[in-house]
Amino acid sequence: MANGSSLRSVASLLLLLNFCMYVVVLAIGGWAMNLAIDHGFIIGPELHLPAHFSPIYFPMGNAATGFFVTFSLIAGVVGVASVLAGINHIRHWTIQSMPAAASAAAISWSLTALAMGFAWKQIELNIRNANLRTMEAFTIILTVTQLVYIAAIHGPSRMA
């Protein structure tokens, strides 16, 4: 019984931590997307597109920034949605509430892992500002904490 109670506490703490971190990722990603839209590549009607034009152009960062920001925003939105299913599971902590929380968390984790891959590529290319470095760190940490959360809600003796 104590093990199930402690797993519930760990899952609750991880859920709160992940929610806060997903909100930070969404805030920084929203800032980056807004900046890219406001200061992106603008072409007049008489001009032609450059040979290597990318529709995912970001004026800050490097070639991986557009993909990283886009997938981080998607992972952030799905992550926040998975927190809602997780809150329901933490409240009830029954076998009936676990599948929704586990599947939402697994989808969120897989999208966060994809964003983490682009974060590693962006780190490798080495041209980025402090906001993007913060978003990279949060994405990498979220990949680990979301996986630990999934393990916590699947733990043995978790149902009272």
Rank of each mutant, 00 (worst) to 15 (best):
P55W: 13
F58Q: 01
T65Y: 02
A64V: 00
A27K: 02
Y149F: 15
A100T: 11
Q96P: 03
A113T: 09
W120N: 05
L35A: 10
Y57F: 12
N88P: 01
L26W: 02
V69R: 00
L14G: 09
P156M: 07
A101R: 04
L73A: 01
N34F: 10
G4H: 06
G4Y: 07
N126Y: 14
M159R: 05
C20R: 03
V144A: 15
T65W: 02
T70W: 00
L26N: 04
A2C: 05
A36P: 02
M116P: 01
L111H: 00
S5T: 12
S72P: 11
L7A: 13
A113D: 03
L14K: 10
L7W: 15
G117R: 07
A27H: 01
S103K: 07
V83D: 05
A160M: 05
G155M: 10
P45H: 11
I37H: 09
P50R: 12
E136W: 03
R91W: 03
V144D: 07
P45W: 09
H89Q: 13
G44H: 09
Q146N: 12
N3R: 14
G4R: 07
V78A: 06
P45Y: 10
L125A: 14
G76Q: 02
L147V: 06
V23L: 15
E124G: 11
A100L: 12
V10L: 15
F41P: 01
V25T: 07
G30R: 01
L35Y: 15
F68T: 00
S12R: 11
S12Q: 13
I90P: 09
G66M: 03
I87F: 14
M159K: 06
Y57C: 02
F53M: 10
G40M: 05
V78I: 09
H48E: 14
L14N: 11
L17S: 06
A119G: 12
S12Y: 08
F138P: 02
F41A: 11
A11L: 10
V83L: 07
L47C: 11
V23C: 13
S110L: 15
A27Q: 01
L16G: 09
A102P: 04
M1R: 11
W109E: 01
L13M: 08
R8I: 10
I153Q: 12
I127W: 11
G29E: 00
T112N: 06
A104D: 07
G61R: 06
A119S: 13
T143K: 07
L142I: 12
F67M: 00
S12A: 15
H89T: 10
I74A: 03
L132V: 08
S72E: 03
S54Y: 09
A32R: 07
W120I: 15
F58M: 04
